[in-house]
């Protein structure tokens, strides 16, 4: 079972899959937050995404996956300068990871053995140009959250410790998953995620049986199963690449901008990040569908996942903010 479960073989959970594909098309959307029950395929989807993403070109041996030789940071160990293809990095940030492991620290081994002051890159460096995945993000310790907020915002990791003064690019797509029953996420961190989706277990037996059947086939008839789905995965990968190429030429009419603003005002979302993300997500969605211009339909498709986590929390709203977005969406953009 060395290969992860194929992305296209995940049954249902369309909103989650859509959100992940959108961030693959435009990493600038800024990440996905997946909240939901246990055993609904959150982790499976993230692992599958890693296998689905197109490869990147990077300098061999570069700790921050630089695309060009001149971008390799000065503190890095000498590199050969050869460009290699490697899979898009998807780095796990385990709960309780220490600050040293996340941002990097003095390389103790080299300090002790050779007396050199060298920097050992952390997880943030390895996640550059890729994805940073945090399972149970709502249980993450506060001081790590603060670090992440800062880096996710600036796209740069600055290390000032133990006599080191180092900065390196750390642009990554944040993917978080968690179970809201176990703890809330701070609004500041919520806001850093571009899209948020809520997943729940499928309620009808047919879907559940299908999930089980595929999982069972994956585990016990791996070769045939992977062969069947590899084709679908690669066609999805092709359309992601095509959408990436089409993105710059996509037209955004003024009326769509107006719609974005009207929607965010009606929902009372704080700041302008809501509008910006909504627009980016809508553009990515339009590019994915192969459209020439962004339309209101695209906007409506992505509005729930782009905005539902930016509303002020209402303790009485048992239905969740997703339905609030849907209601206002129907009012503002008929």
């Amino acid at each position: 079972m060395s290969q992860p479960f194929p992305f296209s073989a995940i049954v249902g959970q369309e909103a989650m899959k859509q959100a992940m594909v959108l961030t693959a098309i435009d990493p600038g959307i800024g990440g996905v937050l997946v909240f939901g029950d246990r055993g609904t395929g959150k982790s499976t989807a993230v692992r599958a995404l890693a296998a689905l993403l197109p490869e990147i070109t990077a300098v061999e041996g570069c700790p921050v996956n630089s695309a060009r030789i001149e971008d390799v940071p000065v503190w890095a160990p000498p590199v050969s300068g050869k460009l290699v293809k490697r899979p898009t990095p998807v780095i796990d940030l385990p709960l309780g990871a220490t600050e040293d492991r996340v941002v990097g620290a003095l390389d103790i081994e080299r300090a002790l053995t050779r007396g050199e002051k060298a920097f050992e890159a952390g997880l943030l460096a390895r996640a550059n140009r890729g994805y940073l995945y945090i399972d149970e993000v709502n249980l993450l310790e506060d001081h790590i959250v603060d670090l992440l907020l800062d880096v996710a915002q600036s796209g740069e990791n600055v290390v000032e410790r133990e006599g080191l003064s180092i900065r390196h690019p750390a642009r990554f797509v944040l993917v978080g998953s968690g179970n809201p029953e176990e703890g809330e996420l701070r609004p500041q961190l919520l806001d850093r995620f571009g899209l948020s989706v809520e997943v729940s277990s499928p309620r009808d037996v047919e879907t559940r049986v299908e999930v089980m059947r595929r999982r069972d086939a994956y585990e016990h008839d791996n070769d045939a199963f992977m062969k069947k789905w590899r084709a679908k995965d690669s066609s999805l990968r092709k359309s992601i690449l095509a959408a990436r190429a089409a993105l710059p030429a996509l037209k955004t009419p003024g009326v769509v901008l107006h719609d974005c603003a009207a929607l965010c005002i009606a929902l009372g979302s704080d700041g302008l990040r809501g509008e910006l993300t909504l627009l980016r997500a809508a553009r990515a969605q339009a590019a994915f569908e192969g459209a020439q211009t962004v339309t209101r339909v695209h906007l409506k498709t992505v509005a729930t996942s782009a905005l539902s986590h930016r509303l002020r929390r209402d303790p009485l709203d048992e239905a969740g903010s997703g339905s609030r977005v849907a209601r206002i969406l129907a009012e503002i953009l008929p």
Partner: peptide, 18 residues
């Protein structure tokens, strides 16, 4: 496969790991 899934659903077990 079907009957176990059905029973799990009937018992209100949301997780598909079960």
């Amino acid at each position: 496969l079907e009957s176990i899934t059905t029973v799990a659903a009937a018992m209100g077990i949301a997780s598909l790991r079960a």
